[in-house]
Amino acid sequence: MASLVLADQTRPLRLSEQQISRYGQLYGEAAAKRLAAWQALLQDAANLPEPQKLDAVNRFFNQVRFIDDIDHWGKEDYWATPAEFLISNGGDCEDFSIAKYYTLRALGVADERMSLAYVKSLELNQAHMVLTYYASPEAMPVVLDNLIGEIRPADKRPDLLHVYTFNGDNLWLSKKGRRAELVGTSDRLKPWTSVQSRVENNSVNLNSQEP
C-alpha cells in the first residue's frame, strides 16, 4: 500500500525525458539540466531516512537564485510550481518552500508532518515563508529556510516570528513555531489553491519569463 501512495504523490512531479527535452528547447539547456537533476533527486533520495531527505531537498533547492516576484514574474505575488521555479532558476521564499514541500511529499514524507509557515523575519523586518517539519505531532518542528541553510528547530530560530501555517489540508494560527489553533482549511488561501491546481495538472506557465 505504501508504494501506491508514493506513486500517487510522485506522479504530478514526474517528468519524462521527452518533457525535459521540450522544456530545454523552450527555455534553454540549463533549464533542462536543472529539471533532470530534480528528477534524479526524486529517484536517489526515495529510500533515505527522513532526516536525510530533508537535508538533501533543502540543499538542492537552496542553490536556486532568490528573486523578488515583481522583478522575476512582473507581479506583486506569484506562487510558482517546483517546475516553474527550476525552469526560471529563481523565485522568492514562497517558491523555495513550495518546491521543498512537494518534493518531500513525493519522497514519501507524510503531509501531516509538514507545514508551510508564514513568518516575519525580524532581522529583515519583512514577511517570509519557510517549510516546517514535525518528526512527531508533539515535537518541536524544524525549519527549512532559504535564508539559513542549516536545518534548525523552530525554537532555535529567534529571528522568525510565526504567524500562521498550512499544508495540503489545514490552516492553523501558529505560536512559537508550533501549530497553535486550527482555523480552517488551506483552500482559504487562493495563491495556494492556484499552485496546487497547476502542480496536479503538471502545467507550466512562464509567459515571457526568461530562464
Score class of each variant (00 low, 15 high):
46 A>S: 14
72 H>P: 01
92 D>K: 12
99 A>K: 08
207 N>Y: 09
121 S>D: 15
74 G>E: 06
5 V>K: 13
148 I>Y: 12
90 G>P: 01
61 F>H: 02
13 L>I: 11
177 G>F: 04
159 D>Y: 01
97 S>W: 07
55 D>K: 12
33 K>T: 15
140 M>Q: 12
89 N>I: 08
117 A>M: 15
23 Y>V: 08
119 V>L: 04
207 N>Q: 13
110 A>I: 03
209 Q>A: 11
211 P>Q: 14
174 S>N: 04
194 S>I: 14
135 A>D: 14
178 R>D: 05
122 L>Q: 11
211 P>T: 14
93 C>P: 09
125 N>D: 14
179 R>V: 04
96 F>C: 07
112 E>T: 09
48 L>S: 07
66 F>Q: 05
150 E>N: 11
192 W>T: 12
134 Y>D: 12
56 A>S: 15
67 I>F: 00
45 A>Q: 10
83 A>N: 06
27 Y>C: 02
33 K>R: 15
23 Y>R: 00
171 L>P: 00
170 N>W: 12
205 N>A: 14
103 T>D: 03
2 A>S: 13
202 N>E: 13
176 K>M: 11
205 N>M: 14
55 D>Y: 12
7 A>T: 13
25 Q>C: 11
151 I>V: 14
16 S>N: 04
92 D>G: 14
11 R>S: 13
162 H>M: 05
35 L>S: 05
76 E>C: 00
195 V>W: 00
61 F>C: 06
189 L>F: 02
88 S>V: 10
31 A>G: 05
18 Q>Y: 07
181 E>D: 01
94 E>P: 00
39 Q>A: 03
54 L>C: 07
88 S>W: 12
127 A>S: 13
62 N>I: 12
160 L>D: 04
193 T>P: 01
135 A>I: 03
191 P>M: 08
158 P>K: 02
49 P>N: 09
32 A>K: 01
61 F>N: 04
12 P>D: 04
188 R>A: 15
